[in-house]
Design a protein around this nucleic acid. Structure first.
Length: 877
RNA sequence: GGGCGUUUAGCUCAGUUGGUUCAGAGCAUCUGCUUUACACGCAGAGGGUCGGCGGUUCGAACCCGUCAACGCCCACCA
């Protein structure tokens, strides 16, 4: 069959992906093999593939395919995340375009819309993953809100509640005034803001004069219930025991003393607003201060504020500044930079707010999750993230798990008419518990009201490695026992707390064992200027378009070439070009081989026999190196080694060596060996570039229906099989060949014109002289005593080689070149001699090192002698 | 404010317990080449005082100290 001179990925990718699916090659069932399990970090169900997914899933696919070809039962479980807050926001926005407000809908009506949206957009991203070749077991596709996962979440919540680890209470939480929900600490991102520091005058009661308070939030003065000074602050000592009047508001509040206040900051006076600041809340608790909540849930001022009611908090800030100035109560305004917390999802400023929420106690969970990472039971790659992990666990706070959203797992708590609540999986069970708890046997289900809140999305994702195998509802089932703990987790360091740490907690709490053995942290994909890729910057290429342009294999390779573990990758489409070029190289190497006519009787040339022996050794050595890189999760390095093996060793050296003369046939032995090498190379490259390797592997021989490269095993190599001497001799061959090529280039002698090569002063020919002759087109290689005067010479090791050139020689240039080399060697010799004459070196350095230096000296001296003789003979010419 | 990390060729990175000629790779650059597998190619070449300073050592890109730049994480100074 005729193959095109350029590889066209779009022809083959869809074909082989369908073939793999049709033959169920991605599917895994427990069997006697060693399991290799990966669970996908579930992308948002309504998400669209971006470069980050591309990187992350390429790495997973490489690991999974590699494990499969190492004989393991590889199982990669895909799925999506319901992404509570993000998805709810999208649904709210869509409804808004249809003129529907969320508040106009019932919970059930809203959820109907949300499910419609999910069914419409859900799974787009999973379809996209197929384009890049992801070998997921699609029959296992899960959703964090499907039946099994939802049941797991509820069961877990109830279990933790029954263990006393979940509690409900009014606490200061991070409130998102746009999404109208509480957030966990992890969902708040602090950003620096250029704002202002306002100095407000609080009149001292029954006295002349003011206490000056510095604040960044003058709009909260309506919530002030105290002023606080440091007891050791001399400049504010006169305020002790006094009362002050809140400006504009007119409320009289006490001056309290606490050493929390920083004497140096501002004026040393702090206004205390217990309802709207975490620290003030703490002071409020300590001194039993009243708490006035002046904000509505949406960030507007509430009735309780008494002023500016209904206005937005930021509008109020502008207005109140004017009003304070008008009233003469503004001392001054300074420019000030501070950090303000923003909602990770909606990007609005967080409002600290007191509210009733559900919390999970973290002390116990943090404790069981720390050691396994610190002692490398679970390995982090790169290990530097262990520090970050430890720091978080050692300073952990309770996890606010409730969200005031509808899209998510509803909290399985039922509020009782007489106050209090019960926690149960179903309303019936709740009723039973309620009767027991209250002693009221007349209660009915209608009397119970299920808590309106739902749970943080991460409360389902933290169970993922267990719930995917139904290990919560159905502990000890065959699948969980076989696939758990999973092998490798591939994810970004940005979710180390959200997800990785919590999965480790859940793993130990519910399985008594780690959820995964290794965590590979990818970097962030940035553009080549180092900016994070984002929609708003428009600097993120569409991965699907890249695949169409360069082929999935090309894009995969492009990503991996630049992706060392834990380092950000600076992505440039030029990398995909490199990937595409490599595909084309592989394609054409195969075109060359398959175009040869095989002669069954033809004897094998010695040079081919040597080439096969050499490449066998090279292949084995390189396979071991690739294994080594994989074991350290250095996937880019593994790919680079494979790349060089194919391009340099196989294509540039091996194929050139065995290539028959134009239109001449090749002998059968060499041909067979070459096909076998090619197949082995396809196996090595397959995890990185699955499509082209499958395509060509299917070409090399007649294959049975359903047979695939995917399920072949890569050869196991024993390091003792490798002939090191052979490899070393061949390196010398390469250097000699380079020497001759350099002569050709310099003198502009075409490859067609044959040359001769002389070894000076050696009695034996170099190893593999037939190989050298073939590659360099030499008519002879001979050892001679005396130099030919009209020859170009070069040195390899301590041997001098000469290529007689007759009239072509430029004697002066040749002499100049040799003299330069002699000068370099003399300088080198000098430094070696200096070292050797240093007594302290000779006495202290290990004998082997000293011997090496002596050898260097001897070699340099002999080289110099040889070159000087050559120069002398050239001078005669 | 605390903690961690990075700094090696134009770019992205290797460099294992300090010792084969103070340095390697890929890409990029430059020079040749219409050599019938591939110009998405072939053959070559150039390019680094290993962030600065100081120290330990016979010997430092590697160990120690210090400074600087950049990055990340954490943190309740309004």
């Amino acid at each position: 069959m005729e193959l095109a001179s350029k590889y066209n990925p779009s022809d083959v990718e869809a074909k082989w992906y369908q073939y793999w699916l049709d033959n169920k090659l991605f599917s895994s069932k427990p069997d006697s093999r060693e399991p290799y399990t990966v669970v996908i970090p579930p992308p948002n169900v309504t998400g669209v593939l971006h470069m980050g997914h591309m990187l992350n899933n390429t790495i997973q696919d490489i690991l999974v395919r590699r494990a499969r070809m190492k004989g393991k039962n590889a199982c990669w479980v895909p799925g999506t995340d319901h992404a509570s807050i993000a998805t709810e926001a999208k649904v709210v926005n869509r409804l808004a375009t249809q003129g529907i407000k969320k508040s106009d809908l019932t919970r059930d009506e809203f959820l109907k819309h949300a499910w419609e949206w999910t069914d419409e957009h859900g799974g787009i991203i999973l379809k996209q993953l197929r384009k890049l070749g992801a070998s997921c077991d699609w029959d296992r596709t899960a959703f964090t809100m499907d039946e099994v996962r939802s049941k797991s979440v509820n069961k877990t919540f109830i279990d933790l509640y029954n263990k006393g680890l979940i509690y409900r209470g009014v606490r200061m939480v991070n409130w998102d005034p746009k999404a109208l929900t509480a957030l966990s600490d992890e969902e708040v991102v602090f950003k620096e803001e250029h704002s202002q520091l306002f100095y407000l005058r609080y009149k001292i009661e029954n006295e002349d004069g003011y206490a000056i308070v510095a604040t960044t939030r003058p709009e909260t003065i309506m919530g002030d219930t105290a002023m606080c000074i440091n007891p050791n602050d001399p400049k504010n000592a006169h305020l002790k025991g006094k009362k002050v009047i809140v400006p504009l508001v007119g409320r009289v509040i006490p001056v309290i003393e606490d050493d929390y206040v920083d004497i140096e900051f501002g004026t040393g006076c702090l206004k205390v607003t217990p309802a709207h600041d975490v620290n003030d809340y703490m002071l409020g608790e300590k001194y039993n201060l009243p708490s006035i909540d002046i904000f509505n849930d949406n960030g507007t001022l509430s009735e309780a504020a008494g002023m500016y009611v209904g206005m937005d908090r930021f509008e109020v800030r502008k207005q109140i500044v004017k009003d304070l100035e008008a009233a003469g109560l503004m001392e001054k305004i300074e420019a000030y930079t501070n950090k303000v917390g923003f909602s990770e999802r909606t990007d609005v400023a967080i409002e600290p707010k007191l509210s009733m929420q559900w919390f999970l106690k973290m002390e116990h969970l943090a404790k069981i999750a720390l050691d396994p990472v610190m002692d490398d039971t679970i390995q982090f790659h790169p290990a530097k993230y262990k520090n970050t992990y430890r720091h978080w666990l050692e300073n952990i706070k309770d996890w606010c798990v409730s969200r005031q959203l509808w899209w998510g797992h509803r909290i399985p708590a039922y509020l009782l008419p007489q106050g209090g609540f019960v926690v149960a999986e179903t309303a019936e069970e709740a009723l039973q518990l309620a009767k027991e708890k209250t002693g009221d046997t007349t209660l009915t289900i209608a009397d119970l009201r299920q808590d309106e809140d739902c749970m943080d999305t991460w409360f389902s994702s933290w169970l993922w490695p267990i719930s995917l195998f139904d290990g919560i509802n159905n502990p000890d089932n065959e699948e969980i026992n076989y696939y758990y703990p999973t092998s490798d987790l591939v994810t970004g360091p940005d979710i180390i707390f959200f997800w990785v740490a919590r999965m480790i907690m859940a793993g130990y709490e519910y399985k008594g064992e780690m959820p995964f053995k290794n965590v590979y942290f990818t970097g962030i994909v940035r553009d080549k200027q180092g900016r994070k890729m984002s929609k708003s910057l428009g600097n993120s290429p569409d991965p699907i378009e890249l695949i169409e342009q360069y082929g999935a294999d090309g894009v995969r390779m492009g990503m991996m070439l630049a992706a060392p573990a834990g380092n950000d990758i600076l992505f440039d489409v030029a990398l995909c070009e490199q990937g595409r070029n490599f595909n084309n190289k592989i394609w054409n190497a195969y075109r060359l081989v398959q175009g040869w006519e095989v002669d069954q009787i033809l004897a094998q040339p010695t040079s081919s026999k040597i080439a096969i022996e050499w490449f066998t050794a090279t292949l084995h050595k390189t396979s071991l190196e690739i294994d080594e890189q994989f074991s350290q999760y250095r996937i880019s390095e593994a790919l680079m080694i494979a790349y060089k093996l194919f391009w340099d060793e196989f294509s540039s050296w091996y194929l050139e060596l065995i290539k028959p003369a134009y239109e001449k046939p090749i002998d059968a032995v060499t041909y067979q060996a070459t096909i076998a090498f090619f197949e082995e190379l396809m196996k090595i490259l397959h995890p990185f570039m699955p499509f082209i390797t499958e395509e060509l592997w299917q070409h090399t021989q007649e294959r049975k229906e359903g047979e695939s490269l995917m399920t072949q095993l890569v050869s196991v190599v024993d390091s003792t099989q490798i002939d090191q001497t052979l490899l070393q001799n061949f390196e010398t061959v390469k250097q000699i060949v380079s020497g001759v090529r350099a002569v050709r280039l310099q003198k502009n002698i075409a490859q067609k014109e044959s040359l001769t090569l002389k070894l000076i002063g050696k009695n034996e020919l170099p190893s593999f002289d037939c190989v050298i002759s073939k590659i360099c087109n030499l008519s002879s290689i001979a050892s001679v005593e005396n130099k030919d005067e009209t020859a170009a010479s070069f040195m390899v090791g301590t041997t001098e080689y000469a290529v007689p050139l007759g009239d072509l020689i430029d004697v002066d240039a040749e002499i100049k070149k040799l003299e330069e080399e002699v000068n370099y060697l003399k300088g080198f010799l000098l430094s070696v001699k200096k070292k050797l004459s240093n007594e302290r070196f000779v006495n202290n350095a290990p004998a082997a090192v000293v011997a090496m230096e002596q050898q260097k000296q001897a070699d340099a001296e002999s080289k110099i002698t040889s070159l000087q003789e050559t120069i002398a003979s050239l001078n005669k010419a």
